[in-house]
Design a protein around this nucleic acid. Structure first.
Lengths: 338, 338
DNA sequence: TAATTCACTGAAAGCGCTGTCAATAGTCAA
DNA sequence: TTGACTATTGACAGCGCTTTCAGTGAATTA
């Protein structure tokens, strides 16, 4: 049933070498012969066997994208960017995600083991020792997304979390005049959370505002838990010149809704700001002041970098840093509202 | 640099056949020999070459997922479901999307041409003649998602759009007592839109409610355009026992927000309902009455079906029908609000 | 005219692996 | 002790393709 290069050769009355040349370096073969071969290919519905070809070329033209999760717009945008770039560069995109870091590790081990990918872009939510070790001499070319794995030795595309978070905090403190900023982050070990929290602390210190661990909450980036937390605490939080800085829009949105349910006015009684500028930030009432993270671009840049490395495995590691952008909407009660 | 089966064989002092047997059908080789081979494999960091293996087996253990778009939660959930199922079944998931149907067609042609996938799950937003023709003797096993391609000859997993839309319309007319229901859909050619519009017409007719083409709008499933449309029309729409049935939550959300901006109260002055039950449906104020579409399950079922077919290419085509579910929230002014 | 180049083509050597087949050694019933 | 088995292993023929390398005849140059 499957038609091979040999069948084509026979039909076109040439050798398989010639057929192969038509397929790969067309200019090496006489125009008339080429036509004959091309006709045979079409008539026979010939499709070169990808494995045989890969066996020779040791290239699959596939790159992987490993994400810590696929849930929500954040990842979906990364995928979208990666997909676009991959198609543009003629690569296929293999996507996988794993629940926790152990699972991610076994996923990567699998990829390495079976190594059918020319390269892989890796994003992890937290880095275990095992992961770090695994990557040190990972057999497949890779780039790291979102800078969770420590850098320099490999390509990476990071978002300057600190910069974004500091911009937000400075806006809250300097422009909106906030005197107390609660922080609601993800897991304590989550690197994003850590960076944002650092910015939180730093800017408060700079401004000479007292702050303590009691104003800091660690959740899981989900709407529901944030809603629950806010429901319990909203009346303690509320007050003039007070604000909640949530580490993503989902949680911020949950807090806003909890506030609305409890009769606390946003931003008059309490400011609430988010991070990521996802869909929900615009839809939440009032729309959220947040930090736009260029997710689509991150996905695209990662694949671009990856394919460059695949093409030249020895090229010098590059680190691309993407800059987040403060997006001021209606949830932080600043002068710009006008 | 790359270590082959031969290196392992040499190191373990056996033939490559034996190494191969250790790799594939371990029980055929003596326990002591096997240990020796396994040690060599480990020491040499040997990883079997996927291409050479594929060349013999003609299996890549990769399945594709072709989507019309990657934007938004709808697709992201499908991917999530597909990814989970694929991992469970030991397959890798290759994802691609194409902008329009021409692009999709060329994508599929590419997949067929290079055929490195054991199978592919295909979802298209509309079906052109070329596409239909292409699929008739598509060389790669496939299943069709969301029933856009006409069925029976191949596996498919569809969502009974009509059922969901009718349930919604009956709820609006019978329970909420709506006397006039505007319809805001996607493109005229979009199959989802067609199914939902049909339900709209049918239920209105059943209820003996007059309805004409003027109450029907065709947009693009996006928030912004719906917002704009609603801004222009909101005062014409508003009125007792009137309602807008938007073909997805995004548009419904845009309409709700436009209404809020124009001072039209939802649902008191106008009901607004959506479709899909995505994130925005819950976050919109008031939260949207909508139809929940089991996207995650659709992705998972598609891959399950696909892998079954890959395992047995001759098995009888199955059609899985998933049932949407009416989700009543606060945007439709029904008695259940109480 | 002879020597050299050129454009094109075919033969054949693998790429790394799996599976068939035959060979060997060891076991067991007779 | 012998023949019939069984368990274990190795040799080797491909899988379908790309890529040297070595022709072939025609065109160009000396």
């Amino acid at each position: 049933m499957p038609v091979s290069i040999e069948d084509v050769a026979r039909k076109a009355n040439v050798s398989i070498s010639t057929v192969s040349r038509v397929l790969n370096r067309r200019n090496l073969v006489n125009a008339r012969t080429r036509q004959r071969v091309e006709r045979a290919i079409k008539q026979l519905h010939y499709r070169p066997n990808i494995f045989a070809r890969g066996l020779m070329l040791q290239k699959s033209e596939m790159v992987g994208l490993v994400l810590p999760d696929l849930h929500g717009e954040f990842y979906s945008e990364i995928i979208r960017g990666a997909n676009q770039e991959a198609r543009e560069l003629g690569y296929n995109l293999v996507i996988s995600s794993a629940k926790d870091s152990d699972d991610t590790q076994s996923l990567l081990e699998g990829i390495q083991q079976r190594s059918f990918l020319d390269g892989v872009a890796i994003m992890v939510s937290e880095v275990t020792g095992g992961m770090q070790e695994l990557l040190v001499d990972f057999a497949v070319p890779f780039v790291v997304l979102d800078g969770k794995v420590d850098g320099a030795m490999h390509d990476s595309v990071v978002i300057d979390q600190g910069e974004g978070a500091r911009a937000m905090m400075r806006h809250l403190v300097n422009t909106c005049g906030m005197q107390r900023v609660f922080f609601v982050g993800g897991l304590r070990t989550n690197v994003d959370t850590i960076a944002r929290l650092e910015a939180h602390q730093q800017v408060l210190s700079e401004a000479g505002i007292e702050h303590g661990p009691l104003d800091i909450y660690h959740l899981d980036y989900e709407y529901d838990t944030a809603y629950a937390l806010a429901t319990d605490n909203i009346h303690d939080w509320a007050g003039p010149n007070r604000c909640v800085f949530a580490a993503n829009d989902e949680m911020a949105s949950g807090i806003v809704d909890a506030a609305a349910a409890a009769g606390v006015a946003i931003p008059d009684d309490l400011g609430v700001v988010g991070f990521d500028d996802t869909r929900v930030a615009r839809i939440t009432r009032p729309p959220l002041t947040t930090v736009r993270v260029p997710m689509f671009r991150m996905g695209a840049e990662a694949i671009r970098l990856l394919c460059a490395r695949v093409a030249d495995p020895m090229c010098h590691p590059t680190a691309i840093s993407l800059h987040p952008q403060l997006v001021i909407r209606k949830s932080c009660k600043c002068e710009l509202d006008a």
